[in-house]
Design a protein around this nucleic acid. Structure first.
Lengths: 158, 158
DNA sequence: CTCATTGCAAATAATTTGCATGTAA
DNA sequence: TTACATGCAAATTATTTGCAATGAG
């Protein structure tokens, strides 16, 4: 098992901030730790309440600015699913995951499928396109909402 | 070659409007025809100017409302790429296409890759998830912006 | 000390909506 | 006629920004 992704992200953030001459303030530390401890795909609104549960004096704008900082540094990924809210999640290391989004319960499930990644690269190279990032989202009805159970069709992620 | 997709979409729209008791007004006809004649991925702003070039009396809200109507009827697809603007394109028939989005020139290229679609279905079924729609977007630098030429790595879409 | 950062409120930006008036059916 | 549509302007929603006060280095 690899050293935790979180440790890597902390280092990444530290070096980014150092390189930009950014300061480590009480608010930033709080927001960052809160983010690291949050469930995936938090909205800014959710982050704001989580942070304010600890320190009600933190302003709205600071949450926005700090999450943007996390995204710029590569520590967080900004995501937009259809609902008009921006969500944040921890950036992946080498692996990359995508999302199944339930249109009924709005639940979000992550998955990885290396074979899709490989085909994506193939498509990109066919177009002479240099991929920086990509997203794959499937919208539909999740197993729970269908009342069905997932049927494992063999081996999952190899 | 199949009968034009456009004819199918016109029928789809007509039956949708009939079923909802919606009326065919001068503005709607203008907006709809303008949309059918527009390049793919038009923004609402672009639609508004195109429409106003013909009839400056058409209001902003009517463009919004009519595009939403097109999306609801299944004639158009709403897309959000990262730039905060909602774009519309003609809905696909059976086939489905995805997008390469250049982060430098903001150009959008469409592609189809049935093998990816197949793997997506596989993933979904593994999760007991019923897919209604999906989107795959790759962000990066297009061939033109790289100064490179696309290298065709063999057969394109079979 | 100096300059980045914060919090607030005001400013944007994109989209939506209320309502009086217009107009298909 | 009689709802549905339209156009306008005001309202929402999500996010950004100006600026004086604060605090990190």
């Amino acid at each position: 098992m690899v050293k935790t992704n979180l440790a890597r992200l902390r280092e990444l953030l530290a070096s980014y901030m150092a390189s930009k001459g950014l300061r480590s303030t009480e608010q930033r530390r709080l927001i960052i730790e809160t983010f690291f401890a949050s469930p995936s795909h938090v909205t800014i609104e959710e982050m704001r309440s989580l942070v304010r549960a600890t320190d009600p004096r933190v302003g709205y704008a600071t949450v926005y600015r700090t999450l943007k900082l996390l995204a710029e540094s590569g520590v967080a990924s900004e995501r937009q699913f259809g609902d008009g809210l921006t969500r944040y999640e921890l950036a992946d290391g080498d692996a990359h995951h995508d999302h199944l989004i339930c249109v009924e319960c709005h639940g979000i499930t992550e998955f990885e499928e290396p074979r899709i990644e490989k085909l994506q690269d193939e498509v990109a190279s066919r177009h002479g396109f240099e991929v920086r990032s990509h997203k794959l989202e499937m919208y539909g009805v999740c197993a729970a909402c269908r009342g069905a159970r997932p049927r494992r069709t063999g081996g999952a992620t190899p």
